[in-house]
Amino acid sequence: MKKIITLDINHEHYEVAVEPNQTLLDTLRYQLGLTGTKKGCEVGDCGACTVIMDGVTVNSCLVLAMQAEGRQITTIEGLETKEGMHPLQTAFVEKGAIQCGFCTSGMILSARVLLDKNPEPTEEGIRRGIAGNLCRCTGYQKIVEAVQSAADGMKEGHQ
């Protein structure tokens, strides 16, 4: 039976009626129109549906909408500010880290959490941080470079 819940997404509150068997992913995409979160495998293997929930990345295909109630959720749509794109988004654009773009949302969100925890990651650290996001286009090379470049830029920005 449907139940009305409140989801806190990108610092906005959404009241939605959801079925118990409805995933957070489907709710974001088909009910709230937040289609930046992608559906690639539906069983937690590809990472395209990655969102940030209470500060950590999760596969939103493996979270029930009802489980997400009361938690702070960030999707790719929540990364931009009035000033424009997040430094990671800018770095992905400038460094050529985006090809088909289907893994990009999840990849950027994983990188964001990685940099939150470790602003000066090594190459190995970056690879570990994005290891749950499969990409078939880039071989990850320019993605790693973009994350490194964003980390460098953000560090300078703070100084």
Partner: peptide
């Protein structure tokens, strides 16, 4: 175990 996202859940 798994991936970062899986380990978080």
């Amino acid at each position: 175990l798994g991936s970062p996202q899986i380990r978080n859940l």
